[in-house]
């Protein structure tokens, strides 16, 4: 077991009142799982992912990832934890516009102790994995959407994370590109043995995982 939540609750404070985004969510994920999280818009999927990564503070409940207590960790510990154990893939790619593909991939290594050359080789290997070696010096604006998302996936992998958290990674892509990305994630899950939690709207995408979690109004169905 790599991830476990227990009675996870998240309430957003809003000036119009409290919003219950997560309601006593408890589940476990085993090492090597490819979990897809589905649910209607506003059901709390993004909130769940962000809570898992400690990017927002859960109101109550427990999150343990590889025995790391996410809920009670300090900001500094959480940052280190994210850097070492979690790779993110977002719907909006979240690449830095003035960095080339390979520089974007190397970014999480910026605060690591690896040598310059090692960083470069790692990033290059991952660009090979996502089949973008020949675009390594392109800026994000010089890449197609699917290519940008592949760069983002390479970046998520560069620290050899324990867990990849993907929030609608194919949300901005057309169906055939989506399939490419989903296949890539599947391959990473299989070959690199990296556990993946992927939020998706698309029933088709949900089929790529080996487990499904469905959220409804902040509760697991």
């Amino acid at each position: 077991m790599i991830l476990k939540t227990n009675n996870l609750c998240k309430q957003y404070q809003h000036k119009d009142g409290l919003v219950d985004a997560l309601n006593h969510v408890s589940f476990e994920v085993n090492e090597g799982d490819f979990v897809t999280i589905t649910g209607a818009s506003g059901s709390g999927k993004t909130t769940l992912l962000l809570s898992l990564a400690g990017l927002i503070h859960a109101t109550s409940g427990e999150i343990r990832i590889k025995d790391f207590d996410v809920v009670n960790a300090s900001d500094r510990k959480l940052s280190d934890f994210r850097r070492k154990h979690i790779g993110f893939v977002m719907q909006s790619f979240a690449l830095i516009p003035y960095l080339t593909a390979i520089e974007n991939v190397m970014l999480p290594l910026a605060i690591s102790k690896f040598k310059k050359e090692q960083k470069y080789q790692k990033a290059l290997a991952l660009l090979k994995l996502v089949d973008l070696e020949n675009r390594k010096n392109h800026l994000p604006s010089e890449l197609s959407a699917g290519q940008q998302q592949r760069v983002a996936i390479a970046r998520a992998l560069v620290n050899s994370p324990t867990l990849i958290l993907a929030d609608e990674p194919t949300g901005n892509l057309d169906p055939s590109l989506s399939t490419d990305i989903l296949n890539l994630l599947k391959k990473i899950n299989k070959e690199e043995k990296i556990t993946i939690l992927m939020v998706t709207h698309s029933p088709l995408a949900a089929e790529f995982g080996n487990r499904k979690i469905n959220l409804h109004n902040g509760c697991i169905n």
């Binding site: 830095i96 999480p108 605060i111």
Partner: peptide, 16 residues
């Protein structure tokens, strides 16, 4: 903001 938020997300701490 977006960029800095992203850096924080991928594990840059405040000190960095």
């Amino acid at each position: 903001r977006k960029e800095i938020g992203m850096l924080r997300m991928i594990g840059f701490n405040k000190a960095t």
